[in-house]
Amino acid sequence: MWAYIVRRLWQMLPTLLGVVLLVFVLFNLFGGDPAYVLAGKISNPEQIDNIRRQLGVDQPYYVQLGIFLKQIVTADFGASWSTNEQVSQILVTRLPPSLTVLVPLLFLETFIAIGLALAVAYVRGSLTDRAVMMVCTVGLSISILVYIIVFQYVFAYKLGWFPVQGWGNSLWENLTRYALLPIIIALVVSIAPNLRLFRTFVLDEINQDYVRTARAKGVGENRIMWVHVLRNASIPIITHVMSALPSLLIGAFLLERFFSIPGIGREVILAVERSDFPVIKALTVYVAIATMVVNLLADLMYKAVDPRVQLK
């Protein structure tokens, strides 16, 4: 088990190196000279000189790459180009608000979608099934922007049930007050695709031979669905949920922006708007690392669910 984890971490290195190269090529080669990028954004020539020196712009590319690698390893990306805040500080302070929204969202959406998927798959082919699927398709077709704009306008602005936006200091206040509407909107948007996906996973399992065996020994339909089918369907569901995790972190950026939640997603947009390269670079690299770690966790979770998996 530990040998497996060590080997997997070891195998991540080439991928990580690829990510670093990609980011480096993108920002140092295509991104060009920060003086050029920052023209019109930072008027202080001294500051620009400082940035140029930090990045080693005038030096050969391998030196620049070395600087970048050192930044990653030491987690020191310097200061943001626009706010002068330390990049590491930005990351640390932006993560908690994002998690406040994402953790409850992840659990709610997964469990609701699994429950609905089992129910819909049970009545597969019926009118209910087709109606639910149709609603999902239509619901999926409306832009998330429209949901946010309308929900914010109606429930916060017009009806005043929720604050229009903002963020507090205590976790409890955020969870019960500011994060509510964003979570509801995210649920509305994300349940439809998950339901559709999980339904296919469940349907794949329903047609397996072992379900017929369970029926042949007299197991009831409910138990078949909740014990036999769900345990097997949870294998692809885990893959999906885990692999969607990092994108969710970034994917919530629209919500964070609309509701002024000071999270990672909003930070990404701000950084892109301001061409704040250090922040984008740091975020990209660390989120990629997080993705790889999450994938490893997913594989370890398989082992718990599926005895056929051999961790070699």
């Binding site: 080439p14 991928t15 690829g18 990510v19 190269l21 990609l22 980011v23 993108l26 920002f27 295509f30 991104g31 990028v37 990092p246 994108s247 972190l249 970034i250 994917g251 950026f253 990404v268 947009i269 950084a271 892109v272 061409s275 390269f277 984008i280 975020l283 990209t284 989120v287 990629a288 993705t291 790889m292 994938n295």
Partner: peptide, 24 residues
């Protein structure tokens, strides 16, 4: 596969935004 895992380990939206940031 290496190429694929590099691209897929960066969340899609982040990758798009990063490219958008660079391409002014």
């Amino acid at each position: 596969n290496w190429f694929y895992s590099v691209f897929s380990s960066i969340p899609y939206l982040l990758l798009i935004l990063a490219v958008a940031a660079v391409l002014q």
